[in-house]
């Protein structure tokens, strides 16, 4: 760890925007598209994934030096699968309604590439504290994205937001929004918006740099 470390705040914030797992890295799209028929489902899926991500990251980071590289993926998957099964069982026991609406997608968190990706790219190379910060940031970014996606689809496809009716009865719901096609359309628009903002920021940054270099030359 001779090289200078990234500030801990940056490590946390990167999951929210710069390396947002869904909007920038396009990881974990299967649950993203499948369960976000309502805002509440987005929150539920996000929290469940975050829990698994944080627990797995902490554990992997603690034992990272004891695991031989040849079997690291196998060990990671077993650890992840264990936490996913815990979430699945406890959710069925304590929140049966939520478990019913998320259905088969809780067990499928095991194969969410976001989680394995963070173990491979971060937790297996960093200390437990940094790993937890990274996992919470990533999990939060994932949860927020899924919630927004679910909220838009729920609003247009069902007139409601978090279960409360927002649009009047006169608005006939666009059923396509709660069908799989609606997930792709909404995610497409979100990606378009994110890319536009990123592009504008880059252009602005380039313009500032150019202006700065010009002033230097003139001086």
């Amino acid at each position: 760890m001779a090289k200078k470390q990234t500030p801990i705040g940056t490590e946390f914030m990167k999951g929210l925007w710069d390396q947002n797992p869904v909007l920038k890295a396009l990881l974990g799209l299967c649950p993203t598209l499948a369960v976000t028929t309502s805002a509440m489902n987005g929150v539920g899926m996000g929290v469940a994934t975050t829990f698994v991500l944080v627990c797995a990251s902490l554990l992997i980071s603690l034992v990272r030096k004891a695991i031989p590289t040849q079997v690291r993926i196998a060990s990671f998957i077993v650890v992840i699968a264990t936490f996913v099964t815990i979430v699945d069982l406890e959710m069925k026991a304590l929140f049966p309604a939520m478990s019913k609406s998320l259905g088969a997608f809780i067990p499928l968190i095991v194969v969410n590439c976001l989680i394995l990706g963070r173990q491979e790219a971060f937790a297996s190379k960093n200390n437990p504290f940094r790993s937890i910060v990274d996992a919470v940031g990533m999990g939060l970014g994932f949860t927020l994205t899924l919630t927004v996606l679910g909220a838009v689809r729920e609003l247009l496809g069902n007139r409601t937001m978090f279960g409360f009716q927002v649009l009047p009865d006169a608005f006939e719901p666009w059923i396509v929004m709660i069908l799989p096609a609606g997930a792709f359309l909404t995610l497409g628009f979100m990606l378009g918006a994110v890319n536009t903002i990123t592009h504008r920021r880059e252009q602005a940054a380039i313009a500032t740099r150019r202006a700065a270099s010009l002033t230097v030359k003139e001086a």
């Binding site: 006939e172 666009w174 059923i175 396509v176 929004m177 096609a181």
Partner: peptide, 10 residues
């Protein structure tokens, strides 16, 4: 196709 998926009854 969008209308068919959105308003199947109509």
């Amino acid at each position: 196709a969008f209308l068919q998926a959105s308003f199947p009854a109509g």
